[in-house]
Amino acid sequence: MVKREELKIEPGEAVGIVAAQSIGEPGTQMTMRTFHYAGVAEQVPTGLPRLIEIVDVRKEPKKPLMNIHLGPKLAKDEAKAKEVAEELEEVSLRKIAEIKESFAKKEIYIVVDLELMKYEGLEIGDVEKKVRNTGLGKVDVEGETKVVLKPKSASLKNIRRAASRLGDLHLKGTKNIGRAIVLKEGDEYYIRTGGSNLEEVLKLEGIDQGRVYTNNIREIERVLGIEAARNAIIFEVRQVLDMQKLDVDTRHIMLLADAMCTSGVIHSVGRHGLSGEKASILARAAFEETIKHLINAAVRGEEDKLVGVTENVIIGQPIPVGTGTVKLTMKRGKKK
């Protein structure tokens, strides 16, 4: 009990600054070390680039990936796992067919590779149907390998656009999942995918929904909510720092994640996020885009309550942190 009380942070402690310094200092070391780190080309961004990715809350990580663990029935069976993996892999039209444009005849030809198509378990009819569903124009099948599309509007621009859209046409599998391979951990098989689609993967049968992992934090926020996203941020930052053997207390990272998530949606660290949305005008103006903040504040007739640290440093008052939190109240005698 005593120990726990001792561990509590005291009121007035500048936890934010301490957290920032505690993550920032080893981060600087990390940059310097990676500069001198020769060797393996990294497949997934780690180190500082990944850390920046996380705090900037990019739409999608540079290399999104998922780990999908399988349910008890499939986990021990490599063949079954491979089946699931194959089902997952996205097959787009570009992958099995060549798309040619004929500007003279104002047609688009889709020549499928029979072998590839067969391997993916598709038929020319499926392709025809999918192409027709796009509603781009009239579709015909010529011979065994050729699908002809006559676009509705035959302007050159539209033909070009239709052709490039056809390339991305989704035929089979889960969208955004480029590759899926089966890996083994202990005596259990699991699937690692390149690309991430949490929403669809969670709907799959036979997998262990509770252990699905993706490194796409934005996706986690959208599908599972803000609390899951907060945990994801903590997990990802931890992972980056652990990989470099940097010992940073989890609570600093938790504070960072909390700061990013308290508003209910993820905010990036920086101009467009945390710093750009501080309550104080002076604090915002001191950070970046000074004039913009001052003018907007003037237009709205805002008032700065001077409760934060930066504001008080600017005007030259003791800051409301640490020893500055203590105020003396005194009963005065009768007014003179």
Partner: peptide, 19 residues
Amino acid sequence: ERDCLIGYGASMLLNERML
């Protein structure tokens, strides 16, 4: 340097330095 004083909670020292 300012951040360090804030981190220590040394409000009065910071005020002395900066003002």
